[in-house]
């Protein structure tokens, strides 16, 4: 182990403080008794109770979850298909254009994406609501799924698929029985990524949401314009908790998997 120097310790502390102090303050104030955000008046969980009885927040949460599940699922299917085409079909005419078009939303400013989708929906005379947000989120999160899945496919051993064909599978069976189960971790993390992107998107959702389909980020954004409230702090703390638990669970699962695999491999050698 390297010795912890005074300089290292200080820069580490300052760095973490810069990143996490705002969140810590937010969490602390969500347990504040007082309605005034800046005055500490003792510990209380009453804002959480209040949150649960606020119908408009619950509605927004429900819309957000619906949108996130639907858009990330569609994006996962489309993104995986795009990744297969990009990695597998070698050179075909228009390949560069195709891959450019898939990856463009990665660098496209969200405002532009949101605005152009808005214009499209108006032009096609589509009523804005849950479905339009789902469509919008699918288009921009699909490219993230495709990046994650194609980086897995690049190292995928094609002879596994050939072996499946050799043993009597059709192309379709080879994909569902061999390829998909093996790349499943990448597909799942693609889905999780799309899900979280959709969960916290404010810009694109604001452009494509209708009056009856307010998502949580929109709700939070619009209510702080009326002033900070401890209720928002409580809501944000809950969101932090959900994300933290999710991330830790996912990393524990994958870490345990790889540890087990290593142990198995060591056992097999002897």
């Amino acid at each position: 182990m390297r010795r912890v120097t005074w300089f290292n310790a200080t820069s580490l502390t300052l760095g973490f403080a810069f990143l996490y102090l705002p969140m810590v303050i937010l969490i602390i104030y969500s347990f504040n008794e007082s309605k005034l955000v800046t005055v500490w008046a003792g510990f209380s969980t009453k804002w959480y109770g209040e949150l649960l009885s606020n119908q408009s927040f619950l509605d927004a949460a429900w819309v957000t979850v619906k949108v996130a599940v639907m858009s990330s699922s569609i994006a996962t299917v489309l993104g995986t298909m795009a990744a297969l085409v990009l990695v597998r079909s070698g050179r075909f005419s228009g390949r560069t254009l195709f891959s450019g078009m898939i990856y463009a939303p990665l660098v496209m400013p969200e405002v532009i994406t949101g605005l152009s989708l808005l214009l499209l929906f108006i032009g096609l005379n589509i009523d804005r609501g849950v479905m339009t947000i789902v469509l919008a989120h699918t288009t921009f999160s699909m490219c993230f799924v495709s990046v994650v899945v194609s980086s897995r496919l690049v190292s995928f051993d094609r002879s596994l698929e050939e072996a499946a064909l050799d043993l009597g599978c059709s192309q379709m069976q080879a994909f569902f029985l061999v390829t998909l189960p093996i790349i499943a971790p990448a597909v799942i993390s693609g889905w999780l990524l799309a899900f979280t992107l959709s969960l916290d998107d404010l810009v694109i959702a604001s452009f494509t949401a209708g009056p009856s389909s307010t998502t949580l980020p929109i709700k939070i954004w619009s209510s702080i314009r009326l002033g900070l409230s401890p209720e928002i702090n409580a809501l944000s703390t809950l969101m932090i908790a959900v994300v933290t638990v999710g991330v830790i669970t996912a990393s524990l699962i994958s870490k345990r998997g790889s540890l087990k695999r290593q142990a198995d491999e060591r056992a097999a050698e002897t």
Partner: peptide, 29 residues
């Protein structure tokens, strides 16, 4: 096509299905 030939191949890299047990690998075909 390969899946319709009465030919089986043992690959240089073995190409065993990593997500299936030994039993399931053998039963696959």
């Amino acid at each position: 096509p390969p899946n319709k030939r009465a030919v089986n191949m043992m690959f240089q890299s073995y190409a065993l299905f990593p997500h299936l047990s030994v039993w399931e690998n053998i039963a696959f075909g």
